[in-house]
Computed example of a mutant assay.
Amino acid sequence: MNNAIVTGATGFIGTRLCEQLLAAGWRVSATVRKSSKVERLEELGVGLVPCDLASDGLPAETLRDTTAVFHLAGLTTSANLARLRAVNAAGTRRLAESIRDSGQSPTVVHVSSIAASGPAAKGQVRTADDEPHPISNYGRSKLEGEQAMAAIADEMPISIVRPSVVFGPGDREGFRIVKPIARSGMHFTPGWRTPPLSVIYVDDLAAILIAAADSGKRITKRFAEQPVGEGIYIAALDRHPSYDDWGRMIGQTLDKKTRVMRIPPRAAKVVGWCAGAMGSGSLHLDKIREAQVPSWAYYDNRLQTELGFTPSAPLEDQLAKTVQWYREQGWLKPAKSA
């Protein structure tokens, strides 16, 4: 039987990954902190490993007979570079060193972000072969995390997955976009630009992570100096709706006429600065900066050619499943009867 350790398992993506691993017959353990909400993991039968990567690596005994480590733990809701580095870079380095020092050699699937690579130029579709140039503190910290993991790449097999915008059942951040559209038909866009997006459904991302562990190519230690190419997978569909179009697609799913409400760039930056100063979730200046770029269009056919990935359903159907989940949870009102 395959044995997995998942960090960040209590999060939106991590929980879905645990569900898919268990469905595929894996035995799954998850690192948890004292503050972690573990009820769902306990329901699933996931083993719990007390471990806070802010101060500790994985216990060596936990890694015995481990087939794969899926590293999803990270900080997203901050614009402070020091705080981001402490978790996304130093925490990853601590994890990597503990795996190396354990004497075991599990496959490591490190979950990063396309923010580590940076935005595309207008009309460009970026791939894993393009040199990274992150523009946000979050992106910089995620790239440093990749490089920290690459330091042990000659000692164990490591693949890196850079997800695009992840949506699906359980997505609280995505609900921030859905909620005003459902209530008033308004889709708020920061700035005048409406950049093309890259998106991936959460269950498809989980399938990509498992496939990367099973059959993905691996990075080499050289990645630390040149973070491009083999062993990197861009988790994104070959379809790039603009941010405006994304709101309209959500509106169509909700059967709600949608109006795009543009927030002038200076006003958006003020909102982002104030939100960051108040510690308000992901609506901070770093995210406003990422929203005001020409494009986030990404695609790389390595998903198909190396991992055998195909989307589980059309994008519109995946959005419909997401909205239905919000309704089932009571986050949205039930759909009106015909």
Rank of each mutant, 00 (worst) to 15 (best):
A267F: 05
S78T: 05
A182Q: 03
R85E: 13
S242D: 07
I200D: 08
R64C: 05
Q324Y: 01
D130A: 14
V260P: 08
A73R: 01
P314H: 09
I219V: 05
V166A: 02
F70D: 04
K122N: 14
T253I: 07
L44H: 06
V6W: 12
H71T: 02
G231I: 04
F175P: 06
I181R: 03
V87E: 04
E19A: 06
M1G: 07
V49P: 09
M156F: 02
Q329L: 08
R33N: 12
L22I: 15
L17G: 10
S159V: 03
P134W: 01
D244I: 12
W331N: 01
K321P: 02
Y326P: 00
L303A: 14
G170D: 01
N80G: 11
D255K: 15
T127P: 05
V199Y: 10
L22A: 14
A275M: 15
W273L: 15
K257Y: 05
V38W: 06
E97C: 13
A153Y: 00
R327S: 08
T189E: 13
Q20V: 01
P163D: 09
G272Y: 08
G57R: 03
V199W: 12
N80L: 13
M249F: 10
D245N: 12
V111E: 07
T77V: 12
S113L: 09
P227F: 00
I219C: 00
T127G: 05
G229Q: 09
A235H: 08
Y233G: 10
V178P: 00
L143M: 12
G14Q: 03
G103M: 05
I158Q: 01
V109K: 06
F12A: 10
K333R: 10
L72E: 04
P314R: 08
L315C: 04
R40S: 02
L22H: 13
V28F: 07
K287T: 12
E61W: 03
V125A: 03
D204S: 09
V323R: 03
S282C: 11
T10R: 00
A24I: 04
L72M: 14
L81P: 00
I200S: 06
W273M: 13
V271W: 09
R302K: 10
P294S: 14
D171S: 13
A207E: 13
G8W: 02
W192K: 15
I288T: 08
S164Y: 06
S102L: 10
N137V: 08
S312G: 13
A206C: 10
A267I: 11
K179G: 08
V32A: 10
K333Y: 00
A30P: 05
T220L: 00
S295W: 01
E39W: 01
N88F: 06
P195Y: 02
I13W: 00
P169D: 14
F175N: 10
W273K: 13
D56S: 10
I5R: 07
A116M: 01
I5E: 04
A115Y: 06
Q104C: 11
T310R: 15
I158R: 00
A338S: 15
T310Y: 14
